[in-house]
């Protein structure tokens, strides 16, 4: 697909490049919001949405979206209007931009830059800023508290995320996500396991656990959903938002969740590689496997969300600074030693 795109004129190719991840995000967000409610429902012995669209209320998210589009765009009287309006778009733009370096299949990646992972982490750090912006501009004390919590949380958890990603980069020897994925093709670890990085180095297993905890915190999921904790801060930085702007926040949240899950799938679980070697391989099946791996991680995130209570803000920080950061750096060094020895 990249070859086809490069042969096209510049502007249409650019638009197509932009449209593909956008379509994936939008479709995914609609499905994920519905799925989240279904998972929540089934876990709680309920059925979740059942009414819109026939089979298990599959059209619920679409109906919600239509409703949100029609809703009045309420801006608080004393809000800082420009930044209040701007924050949701910036948040979505940041998580959308990061999809540029995700290798969706062997045939498609938005941009084949050499600093892929690094670019992704850099762009997602802008999310923090948009959360602060939204929370501050709402001129609501709860929103501001949520925004401050969020900023502290995301800045802190970026460190263990980067450290664990660095461990993978160290083992793989590349920052380019496509190259990292290609490295993991084949099925010869211990004779039968796929060549996924998580099976390559025992310290990558611990790295994955820490990575997963960090991305839970980065994407504001329970037990680290403090910025929006509804029973404490009402809804944190989103309190004053309504209608389409609120939908943008939700979209960005879910996109962020998918982004980080896909990053995890790429880094640890072989990206678009089929788990059965050459069986069901190829660009299309690659996309299927890749999304499947990402969505499994998303599902685990949902499962955790509907099981656990949430941490308190100081405990959250203590986990990050006292446990995750030292451990992830020790892990990095150990992984490097393992690579040197074997």
């Amino acid at each position: 697909m990249n070859e086809t795109l490069s042969s096209m004129p510049f502007l249409p190719a650019l638009l197509l490049h932009a449209a593909i991840p956008l379509t994936i995000i939008l479709v995914y967000a609609l499905v994920a919001i519905w799925a989240e409610r279904k998972v929540a429902g089934f876990i709680q012995d309920r059925l979740g949405p059942m009414r819109v669209g026939g089979w298990h209320g599959w059209a619920q998210s679409i109906a919600d979206l239509l409703k949100l589009i029609q809703k009045e765009d309420i801006i608080p009287a004393d809000a800082s209007r420009f930044w209040f309006k701007f924050a949701p778009f910036m948040m979505f733009a940041a998580s959308y931009a990061a999809f540029a370096v995700i290798p969706f299949s062997s045939g498609y990646i938005g941009s084949m830059v050499n600093i892929g992972v690094f670019y992704l982490l850099a762009v997602t750090s802008v999310l923090t800023l948009s959360v602060i912006m939204g929370g501050w501009a709402s001129n609501n004390k709860w929103s501001l508290l949520g925004a401050m919590r969020s900023a502290a949380q995301m800045v802190s958890y970026e460190v263990p995320t980067i450290a664990t990603v660095l461990t993978v980069v160290l083992v793989a020897g590349s920052l380019n996500l496509m190259e990292i994925t290609e490295l993991q093709s084949g099925n010869d670890t211990l004779g039968f396991l796929p060549n996924w990085l998580i099976f390559q180095n025992p310290f990558l297993i611990t790295a994955f656990i820490m990575f997963f905890i960090s991305i839970l915190a980065e994407s504001h999921r329970v037990p680290f959903d403090l910025p929006e904790s509804e029973s404490e801060l009402v809804a944190g930085y989103q309190t004053e938002y309504s209608g389409m702007r609120w939908a943008m926040f939700m979209l960005a949240e879910y996109a962020d969740m998918l982004l980080l899950s896909l990053l995890g799938a790429t880094l640890f679980f072989g990206g678009w590689n089929s788990p059965f070697g050459d069986f069901l391989a190829g660009p299309f099946w690659g996309f299927f496997w890749f999304m499947l791996k990402g969505l499994v991680l998303v599902f685990v995130m949902m499962w955790i969300r509907w099981t656990l209570p949430r941490y308190r803000v100081d405990q959250l920080m203590a986990i990050c600074w006292n446990i995750l950061i030292p451990l992830s750096f020790v892990n990095l060094v150990l992984a490097a030693l393992w690579e040197m020895i074997f």
């Binding site: 089934f42 012995d45 499962w303």
Partner: peptide
């Protein structure tokens, strides 16, 4: 919660 996930509603 996993048991409830597959259990009856």
């Amino acid at each position: 919660t996993g048991r409830h996930l597959v259990g009856p509603t």
